[in-house]
Amino acid sequence: MRIAIASGKGGTGKTFLAVNLALKAAETQTTLLMDLDVEEPNGGIFIQADAADVHKVTRAIPIWDPGACNLCGKCISWCKFNAIIKLGEMILVMPPLCHSCYACSELCPMQALPMEQQSLGEIRHLKLGKLDFTESKLDIGLEQSSPLIERTLEFADEHFGDKELQLLDSPPGTACAMVSAVKTVDYVILISEPTPFGLFDLNLAVETVRQLGLPFSVVINRDGIGNNDIYKYLEKEKIQLLAKIPHQREIAEMYSRGEIIYQQVPAVDEALNQILSKIRSLS
């Protein structure tokens, strides 16, 4: 069973929920948690172990061979991502814009753009009892997070396909990165907060998972702030409200210190029980 924890808005508690849920689940079953917010991963602040193994992830980029090139310029017109430009007598490839489609490299009549591996980021893996945790980190300056997300999912299939529960901490938003992460799962838990910002962005996330045809339900974090509009929305849309996590300053303080919260706050533990019993009813 693979489950994504996602949200439209950033900062609604995805990592908080993913980390606490994974650790609690791992008390009784083999669990994998993947932090796929590859631009700003934070799961590793909360889950630490003595030994971690690091896997470098690369991707292929065309490298210009001036000796072979006849400057015909066809590569420039083929590239749909404007990643190749001609500067005087030189061809320049801009790696951040390249999507590694191989078109320029394989179509070049002079074979002047061989593909070479360049760094994309890294996957850190560590083990804590029944929990396996991976955190993927994109190299700073690269634009696309989807390739690293996809590589991490492949890595997980290869090494951790047997884990009873696989949780995935998704990137914020509803654009390509979020879809890359969410499209492979069996079930989505959306987390939001009861403010107009939270409601507006939740609605976008709901439309996205509906379009992907995925079953989902919602957890409301910081219950008590804002207003009740989000609850009315859930009722009207007939979306299951899986759990509410109360707004408490102490939770924010514990989170800020990188602490695990469910063992300290009974209301959070109770919410996790509700979520886990739903998850277990799915499989």
Binding site: G10, D37, E39, E143, Q144, S145, P172, A177
Partner: peptide
Amino acid sequence: GSPGIGCPVI
């Protein structure tokens, strides 16, 4: 701006 360090932020 948006959260993150990827394409919309760049």
